[in-house]
Amino acid sequence: MTNTHPSPMLANWREIALDGLPHDVNRTSAAEFDAHFADGVAERIAEGQALLEAQKATLDALGSASQVNRALRDAHLGRWSYRLAALLSMFNIIALMIVPMLHDALLPTFTHATKTAFLIAANVALFIPTIIVLNIYRRLLEWRFGVAGLHGLVRVISASLLLYLMADMVGMALYDASIAYFNPPILSAETPLPQWILSIVAAAVLIVCGLVLLVLAARLLKEGVNAAGLSQFAAVLIGVLGVALSGVGVSLIIGFQGALLPLMALDMLAHFLVWPVLTLLFYREIARPSPIRYA
């Protein structure tokens, strides 16, 4: 079935159109394109065109190889990718509910170091699926909706989230782990260093990370990595994270702990809004009742 010697004119087009697809899809689709090309050329020659002219016209009729590649990826790789993203989004919702409960159960019995290690592990366990979901969301936008140039934007968002996570971890390591769950942030009594040093270091890390996020948000707004308003939306989210981190840092220095509670609540609210929406979005893309749309 496979034609291993396509026309040289078709070969380049085919290479782009079939790039990155599973072997069996590659083989089947290559045969289909070869046959389509052969039929198109034969029909045009029968109408009186010269061979080269007929080949060029048939290739033009096939359209953009990159567009076909995106559509083939969506058809063959999209389904499992979107299912994985839906499952990971659901996992994040469940983890967000279970982690505080586990933490509270561990609170009375374990040391600060153990609780901190648990929270860091939980954050990493949430961060990895987040990055995977983010990349699958990029694929969905590229493959199905043809939104281009999202790689840079996803890299900026991933770096911002990593920075936010690192600042959060430093805060948790230097402060009592209960800071994460609306309890008063009490400096750990187990740490040998003076508490004011811990406080300054934690505040400095939070403020610096927050400022870096604000710079990233400003650059994103100014340069605009892509169209469709996604850069602006991401810039606003990253900016909010930056303000939150810097705000927590400043509140540690001036001793105003009241700012922590609304910031933490905002963080949790964002999680509980984002993950259910993403779960529904990806399930909708998997189980669309019909592929037919009129607009």
């Binding site: 394109f33 389509h36 559509a71 592929p291």
Partner: peptide
Amino acid sequence: DFAEGTLYPMLHSLEGQ
């Protein structure tokens, strides 16, 4: 009018469904 190459991903998608 449509890019004829995009017909095949659509056929594969309908087949998948």
